[in-house]
Design a binder for these strands. Structure first.
Lengths: 221, 221
DNA sequence: TCCTGTGAAGCTTTTCACAGCA
DNA sequence: TGCTGTGAAAAGCTTCACAGGA
């Protein structure tokens, strides 16, 4: 009944298309073709059309796609057409940077609670959200019922935080800590390893120098 | 002469292997087999061996891999065996979080200069690195000769910053701003879109609920 | 024996190229 | 005509399965 096995890379591109469509909306562009999307995103027109085809028909032959409508339909596919509550654990530098990110609302997410263990931080406000002790997590999420959690704590605390989030009913985790988390099968964990990006970049730069046409040196979006 | 067209996913896994090997070194583990690496990273033993094979032979048959030696050789492959200077543009929340990250040294990177446009920040210190105005970039990098730059500024400034970095000799950019950057072919740009990760997670959570065995729901590492 | 390194098979994803509709 | 949607072909990546050295 749901979409039959969509390639994961296609899903990742869907988020990129949405970003692009929001930009076009701000510029009051009404209609866009797959060709134009290729110019804007760097993703080929054929790829764009194929990606959309996993989820249905979205355009008008001979015309293109209605920008606003396509935005809405992609949001519906990604299940971000209505607000989704998110829990953030860790109110250090990274946590602060995350909560300050201006795009949450555009993507239908809202940080509804922030947790930290530092007594100096507990009770204070981070952009209008009170910081609570981690032990309050189960009780707080009984009301909030958030399914998504973000781990922004040091590596040595990450597993304990993951366990607590999962106990509290979270089924999807974005993990910024540099450790592999153990978790039950029904929970989905996505690791964000930004220094890995740098390492890959380092390789690609040097590979390109050594043989300017050797490795495709494709950028990741 | 260099490695003939290594799959990009293989490169991304190399960084993950390195992270795992550093952990093993801290635990004083001397030898590791591809089986054990599978247990630790979630990446299959066959995949691990195949990935390494793109770059040479690293193990001993019947024994496994020497942890320290493998770490060194992967570092050499990624060109992070000796310190690489990195420029950071943007000293806001995100920039501060990045510079506070404790793993830079482990991966052979060092932030050698920080730039920002905010007069209130210029001249102050961020973790021992002085914040300079962006206009100083060309001159500063004449000495530092960094090839890698990180863009951690708002979307509307990102293109100008990218242009400045490229002018100053940077050939690889990690872009945290939510815009597609225009750049010459010889420059490699990798976008980090953390909210895209959340959007994908949102889809996967709901897909799994709808059909617990429909979509593989594989986590990204 | 144990475990690596690797060609070949199998599977996934991307690209092509064109039918079909406005 | 113009541009979408999509089977089929091509390319790319992963897994298999086993030869071969310690």
């Amino acid at each position: 009944m749901p979409e039959p096995s969509v390639p994961l890379p296609a899903l990742e591109r869907m988020a990129a298309y949405m970003r692009c469509l929001m930009q076009l909306e701000r510029e009051n562009v009404r209609t866009v073709s797959s060709q134009e999307m290729e110019a804007l995103t760097g993703i080929s027109a054929a790829q764009f059309r194929k990606d959309l085809s996993y989820f249905g028909e979205f355009g008008k032959r001979g015309i293109g796609y209605d920008v606003g409508q396509l935005h809405q339909r992609i949001a519906a596919v990604l299940r971000i057409q209505e607000e989704q509550p998110v829990l953030l654990v860790g109110a250090g530098n990274l946590g602060s940077a995350l909560i300050a990110y201006p795009g949450w609302g555009d993507y239908g997410f809202r940080i509804v609670a922030v947790f930290d263990e530092d007594p100096a931080k507990i009770g204070t406000d981070l952009r209008g959200v009170r910081i609570r002790p981690l032990r309050d997590l189960p009780q707080v999420n009984r009301d909030l019922a958030a399914r998504i959690g973000i781990i922004a704590v040091p590596a040595d605390q990450a597993q304990a935080v993951a366990d607590a989030l999962i106990d509290a009913g979270v089924t999807g985790i974005i993990n910024f800590a540099p450790v592999k988390l153990l978790h039950p099968e029904h929970v989905i964990v996505r690791d964000v390893c930004f220094i890995c990006e740098l390492a890959v970049l380092s390789y690609l730069i040097h590979a390109q120098e050594a043989a300017p046409d050797g490795v495709p040196a494709q950028a990741a979006d």
